[in-house]
Design a protein around this nucleic acid. Structure first.
Lengths: 340, 340
DNA sequence: TAATTTAGCGCAATCGATTACCAAAATTTC
DNA sequence: GAAATTTTGGTAATCGATTGCGCTAAATTA
């Protein structure tokens, strides 16, 4: 009924609990005969090691914490899946926390995770995070920390990100090859590196292909479809509207497409549009949407591997590791002019 | 640097650790003066209670486990979000496990969760689960268990589900009101109650509205778009093809729409189609898809509340509670004939 | 055969916090 | 002022597992 402990086994066999523990852990100081006996009895009695007691004694909890803005955002839940699948075989559990993109909640969650003595922390920093003293505290405690996607540049912290600049560059390059010459950009929150990088990739492509930069073509958006429709309205009022839009978000790109269709402007014939993230819905829009895949499951798996490496290293020299994954341009109809 | 314990505080103040513990827990047996002193010192020394030690001593870990087939499925991640948001203010953490719809993995995960001494378990049973002895073990240990969405009928286990039968009924009723008379059904895995209920709702609506039942109109599908295209092909070969499809899944409905469009059959003019789940993409398909919203975040919150109630009850009389949420019919263009 | 090594196992401390039980001090009561 | 209470706080066991140290008996060596 109630839990079987090593003491129950030791009493039954008339040996000490220490012997039981050693036998169960394959300690060579125990004779094979005793070991077998203990193992057999433990199995019979349905013994299970008490994780909490072990964690308290060893200081290792075999759990890791994952901090994301929202679990139900496809990108994040996919990363979580990747982490979980990579870590489960190693005996780790994942604790999920939502920051709701709130810096204060991030700090709180970090605290409770530290307090629960997690063996590692994975996080995508919240948009509003400025101060990083809570992150320093993680480092002080020598707990492996891995940023994914959204990171801060802090020495000693590993990160797994995608090459946003290149993803943006590939998108814009693709638009140019489709014959577009006046390419607008929906720019996300510049507080986050990822959006800054996407913007820079946009600029770099323009420069490399000798296209002029027009500041009216860069619109600040916020990852919501409405923001995309508003942005499109603004663009269409310009004396010389763009013939392509590279959006830093699938949602704003979607809003743009909807607004354009409503006004009888054809996509991709009149204007090409590409998004970013490869949200599941992008393959079902009309037209289907060109976008950039961030390989989130892979990102999660990589992050987990980085963590495992850091755990493996005897002396946790906290040597940081920066993994940058290559994004994948997914070309679909919203930029495909060859199909007419 | 290293963790501050109540012993550190007790040494500094030259009192016993017991007193410190009591002071921190507002035990009335400690004089206000001492209490204040301890509290102040604890704050100064940056003391934090060791969760693991507490958990070991009390048997309460303040974590709950959530088992889902895949975390990156929108429905499940939304439920998780609901649970997390409801439980976080109560000091609980959530551990996420993926079963990959594999019964064996479900058993394993349950075991490790029990072993980690979670205070409760939330689960959506995997498709392949037949034997339920692992669930019985949870009950034996008197650990609150709450099924959500996919459940097994086991006495003593609470559940939060939606009224699938009614959701199906509303859908079919809606199709009938649109003038459809020959309504087909894409039926999911009948091993799962939810699909059985959706099927029954379909049948009930047909009966109530005096429409004949045609067994050729019921096609077994598997929640993948391809399965939907295959099903449509089969239906279209019938001597008298249907004029509406009620699909038990958004994905198969999507596959159906795509296949029909490809063959020049118009939706909704020639055939109405409705799905189930209100996946995010359904609002972006062309035409936008009528579907049934399962209110997953609400479902998560309800499940959490059921759990909290069970924890609150002094004697855990394990009185089961069955919550059935009302689904929401979301009417969009794929069934809207008035717009012609 | 005596001396020494080694295999096998037990004792008790430890991880950090809680709490039943008990004891000293302070207060009240007569 | 002595006895009876009441406050206040200490002692030590407990949750379950691990492990350094040491002891006993068997095995090895001289």
């Amino acid at each position: 009924m109630s839990k079987v402990t090593i003491y129950d086994i030791s009493k039954k066999l008339n040996i000490s609990a220490a012997t039981v523990s050693r036998a169960l852990n394959n300690n060579p100081k125990i004779s094979p005969k005793t070991r077998e006996l203990v193992l057999k009895t433990a199995a019979e009695m349905n013994y299970e090691q008490n994780t909490l007691a072990l964690a308290l004694k060893s200081g290792k909890s075999n759990t890791v914490g994952i901090l994301v803005p929202y679990v139900d955002r496809n990108f994040f839940s996919s990363v979580i899946r990747g982490i979980e699948e990579e870590l489960y075989p190693h005996g780790y559990h994942v604790i999920i926390c939502q920051t709701r993109d709130d810096a204060q909640s991030e700090v709180q969650n970090i605290n409770t995770l530290l307090n629960a003595q997690v063996d590692g922390i994975f996080m995508s920093v919240s948009k509003t995070t400025k101060d990083t003293s809570h992150i320093d505290r993680v480092l002080q405690k020598k707990i492996p920390l891995v940023f994914f996607d959204r990171k801060k540049n802090i020495p000693g912290v590993s990160s797994v990100t995608i090459d946003d600049l290149n993803g943006a560059y590939m998108s814009v390059e693709h638009l140019i090859r489709q014959g577009c010459k006046q390419i607008a950009h929906f720019m996300g929150d510049i507080n986050l590196e990822i959006y800054k990088n996407r913007y820079n990739g946009y600029l770099k492509a323009l420069t490399d292909y000798n296209l002029p930069f027009n500041k009216d073509y860069v619109i600040r958006t916020n990852s919501k479809a409405e923001s995309g429709t508003a942005a499109v309205k603004k663009l269409m009022r310009l004396p010389s509207p763009p013939d392509a839009i590279f959006s830093s978000s699938d949602f704003t790109a979607l809003g743009a497409i909807q607004e354009l269709k409503k006004n009888g402007i054809r996509v991709p014939e009149d204007i090409c549009i590409s998004g970013f993230s490869n949200e599941p819905f992008t393959q079902y829009t009309d037209p289907t949407m060109t976008t950039v895949d961030q390989t989130p499951i892979k990102m999660g798996k990589m992050a987990a591997q980085v963590f495992l490496e850091q755990m493996g290293g005897e002396i946790s020299v906290a040597l940081e590791k920066k993994v940058v994954l290559s994004p994948q341009l997914v070309v679909r109809d919203s930029t495909n002019r060859s199909m007419g």
